[in-house]
Design a protein around this nucleic acid. Sequence first.
DNA 1: ACCCTTGCACGTACGGTGTACGTGCGTCAA
DNA 2: TTGACGCACGTACACCGTACGTGCAAGGGT
Lengths: 210, 210
Amino acid sequence: MTTEPLSRPRIVAAAIDLIEREGADAVSMRRIAAELGVGVMSLYNHVPNKDALLNGVAESVLSGIEFTDDPDAHWTDRVRAQARAFRQIAHHHPRSTMVVVSRQLHSHAGLLPVERALATLRGAGFDGPDAVRMLRMFIAFIVGSLLREVGVTPTFAPVHSRTVEAAEVDPALFPEVSALAPLLTECDHEAEFEFGVELLIQAIAVHAGQ
Amino acid sequence: MTTEPLSRPRIVAAAIDLIEREGADAVSMRRIAAELGVGVMSLYNHVPNKDALLNGVAESVLSGIEFTDDPDAHWTDRVRAQARAFRQIAHHHPRSTMVVVSRQLHSHAGLLPVERALATLRGAGFDGPDAVRMLRMFIAFIVGSLLREVGVTPTFAPVHSRTVEAAEVDPALFPEVSALAPLLTECDHEAEFEFGVELLIQAIAVHAGQ
DNA sequence: ACCCTTGCACGTACGGTGTACGTGCGTCAA
DNA sequence: TTGACGCACGTACACCGTACGTGCAAGGGT
């Protein structure tokens, strides 16, 4: 076993790997050390504490986003592409998503998506305040969508379809929910996300036109 | 000291109180027991485990929402009112917000807002699938907004205004971010939320009209 | 009046957690 | 050669969730 030297990137990579395999709850300094075949405290030579390590995880995942921005394209296409790129996180690192969105980053990795989004919005003709507003709107939507997608926030699926389908929620108390139960239990995240993005782009376009 | 008997509601209330005073990280079974002047294991006579206790916290906060729904009002007003009511969580229980939105509830408390929202959307003329789509859109937006508001997700404030204002982010690398830094550092959550709600309602109205 | 069940508060104990601290070894600079 | 330094490591501490056993008080059946 060629004992490659310990390093921050290697530790972060091990953490991401562990999160994706066993979930964020499985992450502990001891566990990561074991995964790397290393003593627990050796980690602290490269990472100040667990919190910083998780920040590293968020940055790493975030910087893995493939932004293929075409500055000549229409701004609606560029916004669409950026939103989709962000959603890739949920595909490539589903169980790390919660870590990414629930962490306040002041590093380059966290700023790059913001910079790109602001650039395309300004390019679309929005002034500063409007661009920031639109960006915040999109971020809220995307964060909320990703959380739903990775199962943190409810789908809302009152009846988890594993059970006897519906019949678990009282139709008298919740007529709409029970009537729409089949629709609520299933969720095509891709379609849902696309629908939301289109709705937002459309709304923004209207807002820009006036 | 009149030693009122221990009970689930009293434990949940103590937990909420503790969260609001010292943050969600301060919550431990030992701490709550101490707060109630009670042995740790006594809690387990009323609550199966910590997870269930936090579910209780979420339900309690959620059921504290004041929904004043007027069935005769225009659906846009009803949607607005419901969105605002939900946002009250962030005002009344700011530090519990994360607990509320990050927990999957299958109880009455969690279903009631869904039922109400679906009812008003159906009343507005949307068919089942559309109503569910709109609801999910709103939930994503609201969850994302609340997370930003309570400081979980970034504002995005690359320069935390406590430092030397701007000048911390390289204008060459991030021209837009540094140019808009003043706007990014401050965030009127109320205005931001209202803007988003209006944008969504408007978009949905357009969608409904076609 | 008796017993006996039941409910509930409590203490102890176990295996986990993050991390402060001291120790020893390898590799370079002087 | 010697000194400093970087880094892997073990130990130790305070804290966590909770399984388990114990004892006390109230209530119901006989």
